[in-house]
């Protein structure tokens, strides 16, 4: 079983990202669960969404406490210490951030694989969202695919086309571009 937590701000698309990721994994023949943090959501406030993936049927219906990977849609949650994004993250896990900075910037997060992609720039280039509030969720999922290979790019693209409320092609392009642009710092050193 693989468990993923997605951090974002209300309105950024963290919940939709969890649904797209679950749908992509389903298309790869996996069992899936995706759910939001249980409660009310406010635009701009820190939010989280969760995904479980498994080769076998998933019976556990609980919240996720010990994820294998973290996706962060807004680096401000980390730099401004608005969310403890590595809470419960398993040893050997990854943190994938939407950031223009070098992955080394975030090595203080701990002994995890750190990956970055400038999903905001990519979203703006594809006119996804606005300049001040770009829609970064599809881009960062492309980066997730090249980081983990837990789902295929084809299945992600199909899932994006199904879930993106507008501009499906632009969202797919953003995912592809981010998949190529992700920069990875493993505990052993840089790659990608």
């Amino acid at each position: 079983m693989r468990e993923i937590r997605i951090h974002g701000r209300g309105g950024q698309g963290a919940v939709i990202a969890s649904e797209i990721l679950a749908d992509a994994a389903f298309r790869c023949g996996q069992y899936v669960q995706a759910f939001p943090s249980f409660g009310s959501e406010r635009r701009g406030a820190p939010v989280a969404a969760f995904v479980r993936l498994d080769e076998r049927q998933i019976w556990a219906r609980t919240e996720i406490y010990r994820p294998h990977g973290i996706i962060v849609l807004d680096e401000g949650l980390v730099t401004l210490k608005l969310a403890d994004v590595t809470q419960g993250l398993q040893a050997g896990g990854f943190v994938l951030l939407n950031s223009a900075r070098d992955p080394e910037t975030f090595s203080y997060l701990g002994n995890f694989t750190v990956a970055v992609v400038d999903a905001g720039r990519i979203a703006i280039a594809h006119r996804l969202g606005s300049l001040t509030a770009p829609i970064v969720n599809t881009g960062i999922l492309g980066a997730f695919v090249s980081l983990t290979s837990w789902v295929t790019m084809e299945s992600l693209e199909e899932a994006i086309k199904l879930h993106a409320p507008i501009k499906p092609e632009e969202n797919v392009q953003a995912a592809r571009e981010a998949a190529a642009a992700v920069r990875i710092l493993t505990a052993a050193g840089p790659r990608g």
Binding site: A34, I58, R61
Partner: peptide, 12 residues
Amino acid sequence: LDAFFLSHTHEI
């Protein structure tokens, strides 16, 4: 059905 654990959980 249970709130959130079922109502808002996506699955196959």
